[in-house]
């Protein structure tokens, strides 16, 4: 596919720090290659701002390969922009039209306060993980691979859940600011495997408790999280989390 160039207008959320009010700034960019990624377009903007002796736009990014979960941004009203199953770094400028105005906002949810411009603090996810998103393994010899047989279907589903990169798009897109898809993926990937079953009850209870404490909302099953998840994690994992949580509480 041959790359064209387009001219775009940007409306970017600028906010000095967590306590400032913030507002939109308008920018114009010319000759942006449609083959460039959204983050490369942001780099072009920042280079231009630096050359004009202006403060560049702060945004999170790291691997730029769609696997680290750092890039965020709410683009034209959608988490990670208009494309599906991609992170912002894998969103390309060919998705936009010549002359289009692109609105860029940070994730907006109580659980992820804005640090600066488009950067948000996702420490809340770390706190949820620390509450149980792991298996306790004793030291000793490494067990043989395949010593514990695991049905193919379970292994596949656990792998699907494990593909969560913790980017926060599910919370960002949820009208309730619910973190259920994230917690469900983390509970599910371990609940499906024998190694994770040992602590399954404790894990479901503790992770949900911390999720609630941190002020995330209540899931109302709209399904928006699943549609905006760059890894396509299914709502079926939320049903599994509900089962795990209910049975953990029935067991006591």
């Amino acid at each position: 596919m041959s790359a064209k160039t387009i001219n775009i207008k940007l409306k970017v959320w600028r906010q000095k720090d967590a306590n400032s009010k913030g507002g939109f700034e308008d920018y114009q960019l010319e000759n942006i290659s449609t083959a460039s990624s959204f983050l490369e377009m942001m780099d072009v903007l920042n280079e231009k701002l630096v050359n004009e002796n202006k403060e560049p736009v702060a945004f999170d990014h790291d691997c730029r390969e769609g696997i680290c979960g750092m890039c965020s941004m709410f683009i034209n009203g959608r988490a990670h922009g208009p494309d599906t199953l991609v992170t912002t770094c894998q969103l390309h400028m060919r998705t936009f039209k010549d002359g289009e105005t692109i609105v860029i906002e940070p994730w907006r949810t109580g659980g992820f306060p804005v640090i600066k411009d488009l950067m948000v603090d996702r420490t809340a996810y770390e706190k949820i993980m620390q509450a149980g998103g792991f298996v306790s393994v004793n030291t000793g010899g490494v067990p043989d691979a395949n010593a514990i047989p695991i049905p193919k279907h379970d292994a596949d589903e656990a792998m699907d859940a494990a593909s969560c990169i913790g980017c926060g798009a599910c919370v960002a897109t949820c009208k309730n600011s619910s973190a259920m898809l994230f917690v469900a993926a983390k509970v599910s990937q371990l609940a499906l495997l024998p190694q994770g079953r040992v602590e399954a009850s404790k894990r479901a209870k503790n992770m949900v408790a911390v999720m609630d404490e941190l002020g995330f909302g209540n899931c109302s099953n709209t399904g928006a999280c699943e549609m905006e998840c760059p890894k396509g994690i299914s709502l079926a994992h939320i049903a599994r989390l509900n089962r795990e949580f209910l049975s953990a509480n029935i067991k006591g």
């Binding site: 009203g77 949810t109 897109t173 009208k175 909302g217 399904g223 928006a224």
Partner: peptide, 25 residues
């Protein structure tokens, strides 16, 4: 009420048509 409280600042531009049903929202 808890869900509204969980989202203190709303988006200025939001497009939910493609990700969820009107009745669900």
């Amino acid at each position: 009420l808890q869900n509204w409280k969980a989202t203190p600042v709303n988006y200025k531009t939001v497009n939910q048509k493609e990700s969820s049903k009107w009745s669900a929202r």
